[in-house]
Design a protein around this nucleic acid. Structure first.
Lengths: 187, 187
DNA sequence: AGTTATCCGGAACCTGGTTCCGCTACCAGG
DNA sequence: CCTGGTAGCGGAACCAGGTTCCGGATAACT
């Protein structure tokens, strides 16, 4: 049981850092499906290094956006406490989520991809955000503002889908999402 | 001006026919993004032949599904005439559209792709179906059932998006679409 | 049957993801 | 500081799938 917890090599940490920065830059420049080689080049490392630190593209995406997802998740309870009504809180929170997706070129597309490599992405986002959404839905249902029985996962999935191609001219993801949120209202 | 309208070669027509059949089969088997080589093999032709008849994948998809799209388009006015209310007709028509998309593995995904090659697909579907949808929306608005000003293109785009990944477990595209259609209702 | 425009097949090429292994350079112990 | 051993690196090589291209086959016409 000799544990030899040798310190992590400094270049390794430096590279990981550089990769996160490079990936973030590449993502804004070319969307979340920026070519692997581009990201590697930006970071000044070889492609192998990417795969070592982030075995799948999803891992990289998650690492890049973790902060923002966390912030979104934490905003849920806060909004519930500060909003005039649970439905208003729900609407505001979903706006937050939509803003997040819409500003990340191609994230929504990647999110829904059922490609096995993206499983991580899918499950991370969902595990972090679905419970928050569920809380909001429950509160709104308890207040009688919406019909009960709406599944948070289905709602999130749908909202995510609506954000796909949000930047194509002639489409308006936000408007469609508003329609959905309105549709939730109890008749 | 010697026009020499030589008759189209018989093998050409035969191949086109075979390709349509093969593509249809491949699409149900592996979705609309079945590998080109597969389709060629099924039809017993070389890949070059596919590209000659259908320069882009979108052309092939359009050709395969033209009948069904046409049927959907024609159902619009019919439903308007036979339904108890314009909003009911709109709902029924959208159901038809959703059924169409949901049963074609990957069609919804392809529809929204802004990849230049899919431009044809996008514009064909839209040009054929958006006007129909617009008519229904207008009728419903005139009847005071929904708020006016909803853009048919945005609606169709959104509904299409909601159908993406319709077959993933735990998602329910139809339910989300119903929410949208409900949301259209005048408050 | 001969001529020719048309069409076909599939090898070759391109792009972008993924793997693998010889080499580098960092850490730790003397 | 020097040195051995190993974690980690780079990038060439490989794979998959789409697209192009051209020598050769073949149907249409005379």
């Amino acid at each position: 049981m000799a544990d030899t917890p040798r310190k992590r090599r400094s270049d390794s940490r430096r590279n990981e850092e550089a990769l996160l920065e490079a990936a973030a830059a590449a993502f804004v420049a070319s969307g979340v499906d920026a070519p692997v080689r581009d990201i590697a080049a930006r970071a000044g490392v070889g492609v192998g290094t990417i795969y070592r630190h982030f075995p799948t593209r999803a891992d990289l995406i998650v690492a890049v956006y973790r902060h923002q997802v966390e912030a979104c998740a934490e905003a849920g309870p806060a909004l519930l406490a500060s909003s005039p009504s649970p439905h208003a809180a729900l609407a505001a929170w979903i706006d937050l989520f939509v803003d997040f997706l819409v500003t990340k070129h191609g994230l929504a597309e990647a999110m829904r991809s059922d490609d096995s490599g993206f499983q991580t992405l899918h499950s991370y986002f969902l595990q972090r955000l679905v419970p928050v959404c569920a809380r909001l839905l429950e509160a709104a249902a308890d207040a009688g503002e919406i019909a009960p029985g709406m599944d948070a996962l289905v709602l999130m999935h749908g909202v995510g889908n609506l954000c796909i191609g949000a930047s194509t001219p002639g489409y308006d993801a936000r408007r469609m999402v508003h329609l959905v949120v309105d549709g939730l209202r109890r008749p």
